[in-house]
Simulated assay, not measured.
Amino acid sequence: MVEYPDGGTTVWKRSGVTWTLPEPMLTTPVPTPDLPPGWAGEPKWDGFRALLHTDSGRMVLRSRRGTEMAPAFPDIAAAAVQLPDATALDGELVVREHDRLAFERLQNRLQRHSSAAARVAEEWPAHFIAFDLLRLSGTDTTGWPYKRRRAALESMFTARRLAAPWTLSPSTTNPDTVREWLTWTSVGVEGVVLKRLNEPYRPAARGWRKYKVRETTEALVGAITGPLSAPRTLLLGRYDDQERLQFIGRTTTLPHTAGTALAGLLTPARAGHPWIGWSFSAGWGSRETLDVTLVEPDLVVEVGADVARDAAGRWRHPARWHRLRTDLAPSDVPRATGCT
């Protein structure tokens, strides 16, 4: 095995055959989960996308962006002996908590190494949900159509009697089953991924389709980025049962028309605003802080948010602007649940 000095692509050479761990195949967002003829659907899991390869007793576990994650997941590395040698999988790393996938536990595990990684692996074991086969016992399978790769992946799971942490992701050509998966959001399904049955695995190409479940809901504007005369994004809040205004998420950049409409309705915060002294990160997991202007939390807006939330109940991804709701009062907005 040969590794490039920059820690990027890893190349295996065996018996005169060279094989390179490819970049992952990517998705294109679509507005509906409709499953066309000649396509298959799979659940989209709330975890870390990962490419895994085992060769001569060594495992490589790469993130979508090429980061080596094996030191943080010794439980996955130890279980690699269950796989055929010289085999590569594409899949999703997840951690389960009770009856749901807990992304925040997974995120915490990524920060641990050595003995700390081993300790947290005992408390929060990871699972690898395999959804594609890139190499099997030394044979490059990326040129095979999805239908053949899927059949080989299923046969491998059966023949090797793979058990935890290995999980085979479901796949279907039944549109009704795809629709049913979209009701599994409470356990960690974010949406569905659609794949052509006759398409090979094309590294870095956006050949798959992705539909994410989103909910349209209301929230209060508690702060903004940008000037009051032309707000760029909104920081959103909801009151909890103790009448405390909890931060629940931020919007994407507002359309120009939305910023113009909001400009005349936003009121600068008065003394006693509940978020005075707070700092807000630029994104989930980011250490960069935002420069925000607090406003009176009396304006209701409707946004579209996906179902991914952190342990405190906040939206992990920015919400999309829908419209103003001047017909609603702050008391009409749903209560914050789980936010601290």
Rank of each mutant, 00 (worst) to 15 (best):
A261Q: 13
P231M: 02
R209Q: 15
G264T: 15
Q246P: 00
S229A: 14
T257L: 14
K212Q: 13
A219G: 02
G259S: 15
K210H: 10
K212D: 03
A261C: 06
L228M: 09
E218I: 02
E218N: 07
P227M: 04
E215Y: 10
L234V: 05
A204M: 10
W208V: 00
R206N: 11
L245R: 12
E215M: 10
G222N: 04
R209C: 13
L236M: 05
T233C: 13
G207K: 07
L266Q: 03
G237L: 03
G249Y: 02
Y211A: 01
G264K: 06
H256S: 14
G226C: 03
T257C: 00
I248W: 06
A204D: 15
A223M: 07
G259I: 05
G207P: 08
L235Y: 03
L245S: 09
D241A: 12
P231K: 01
R232V: 14
L220S: 02
L234Q: 07
R202D: 07
S229E: 14
P227V: 06
S229I: 11
A219Q: 01
A263F: 05
F247L: 08
L220W: 03
T253R: 14
H256V: 14
A263E: 04
R232F: 02
L266M: 03
L228Q: 10
R244T: 09
A204L: 11
E218C: 08
G207N: 14
G226Y: 05
G264Y: 11
T217C: 06
T253N: 14
H256E: 15
G207Y: 08
I248D: 02
A204N: 15
R232A: 13
A263C: 05
T233Y: 04
L234R: 10
E243R: 13
H256D: 15
D241W: 09
G264W: 06
V213N: 01
T257N: 10
A205H: 12
L235V: 05
A223D: 05
F247N: 11
R206M: 08
S229R: 14
R214W: 09
T225K: 09
P255E: 11
T253L: 15
A258K: 04
G259V: 07
T251I: 01
T216H: 07
R209L: 15
R209G: 14
A263G: 08
A258C: 05
L254E: 12
G237S: 01
L262R: 05
R238Y: 09
W208E: 11
A261F: 04
P203Q: 06
